[in-house]
Design a protein around this nucleic acid. Structure first.
Lengths: 222, 222
DNA sequence: GTCCTGGGTGGTACGGAGTACCGTACTAGG
DNA sequence: CCTAGTACGGTACTCCGTACCACCCAGGAC
């Protein structure tokens, strides 16, 4: 019997017991007994009782890292979308486990904490790659902050879409993700940092947008 | 001897031992003995060993909540700045403890997890108030996401400034905070959602900004 | 066949966190 | 002096996580 099967049995046993009795009321001995193995074997497969709730964290994190590493500055926006999509697809792959995990993380404080730690890992991953795409231009204070805010926004957008789907509010989460990531990158994207000569001023006018735009274009032409 | 003094002695004892021996190598018995109290008293003052590292979390969270609750939509930007400034000022008040805490959270995984959980509390606080300021307009998908992203960005900006100061890279953290929050709200601020008739187009020109702006103003005037 | 080696496993024992419970001292107020 | 309330210390318990050891079993060397 290969080791992966033992891991899978432990995960299945843990989710069965957690959803039935609750997280705190289930001991590691219970999980091991339910899976038909010893307590020591559990801790060989998972570093803690919390970790069994997020069994695919490390491999997904690695896949996201690989996707981001393969991108350059020009393909940044697409990389952000597809990297977050890797995570989303993994949740969509088996929705029952994802929903069970959602129910657990929303009710058990200890699991919320480890989930926060996991999301922090994603944020740092995105941040580092975004910073790598930015720094060729310059290394100002604002750039480090921009990288962090953008990374945070991407993760937040993903979580937002995922949560909506888990609650049944969304029909097409992949499309929602594309919209959300697009909305985020269009506001906090890298382009604004790239063109430092860009200046932003908000003006209001009673004139219609379609009327004004051609005139402004003409004004800036020469 | 009032109860607050016991708490303070426990915090001081904990930081002494944590910085000297490390977090894991220090037991709760050690902290209690160092503070001259029993082990039971420790758990009466703090719910866990980790919590003693963030003794002012709850009151600061309350103060931030109060500041945000007193703001309306029009004073939103100022409220975001001042609310985050409450947190910053509390760290600046005794920098030694803040630096010791920073050294601990960066090296001890368990403390990073609880810090993430604490920051999550701030994010949810900001998110709820921002959502309260937005929802009068409409309740679209994008608005919930905007509230979450903006809340996240504010917390990120604060953490960014705080971390720079803790590392000694910054001289005037209050000014940096104002800049960072300003940079964040100008990009992700509520105004864009408020004025739905606003449209954004990026145009490039060889002409200088100062030349163009008055002409554009004149163009939009009538 | 016997011997040896190494990976996966189960069992036992231990330290330490967190909880429940009880007894005690000190104080305030009648 | 008595009583009620409060803060404190001590003991015992469960459970997580780790260290250590003994076991089984496959497979190769001779």
């Amino acid at each position: 019997m290969p080791a992966s099967s033992t891991r899978a049995r432990l995960v299945a046993a843990a989710f069965r017991l957690f959803t039935a009795r609750g997280f705190e009321a289930t001991t590691v001995d219970d999980i091991a007994a339910e899976a038909g193995v010893g307590r020591t074997t559990f801790f060989r497969s998972f570093p803690s009782k919390e970790a069994v709730v997020f069994p695919d964290h490390a491999p997904i994190l690695g896949a996201v890292d690989a996707r981001l590493a393969s991108a350059s500055r020009d393909s940044a926006d697409l990389a952000l979308l597809e990297a977050s999509r890797i995570v989303l697809d993994n949740y969509l792959a088996d929705g029952d486990v994802a929903r069970a995990r959602y129910a657990l993380t929303t009710s058990v404080p200890a699991l919320r904490a480890t989930e926060s730690a996991n999301q922090r890992a994603y944020q740092q991953l995105f941040r580092d790659h975004i910073r790598r795409w930015i720094t060729p231009v310059d290394g100002e204070l604002a750039d480090d902050l921009l990288a962090e805010v953008l990374a945070n926004a991407v993760v937040t957008a993903h979580n937002h879409v995922l949560r909506r789907w888990l609650r049944g509010t969304s029909d097409d989460p992949r499309r929602d993700l594309a919209d959300a990531i697009g909305a985020v990158t269009s506001r906090i994207g890298l382009d604004a940092a790239a063109h430092e000569d860009t200046q932003v001023v908000v003006l209001r006018s009673r004139r219609s947008f379609d009327d004004v735009l051609p005139e402004v274009r003409r004004l800036l032409a020469d």
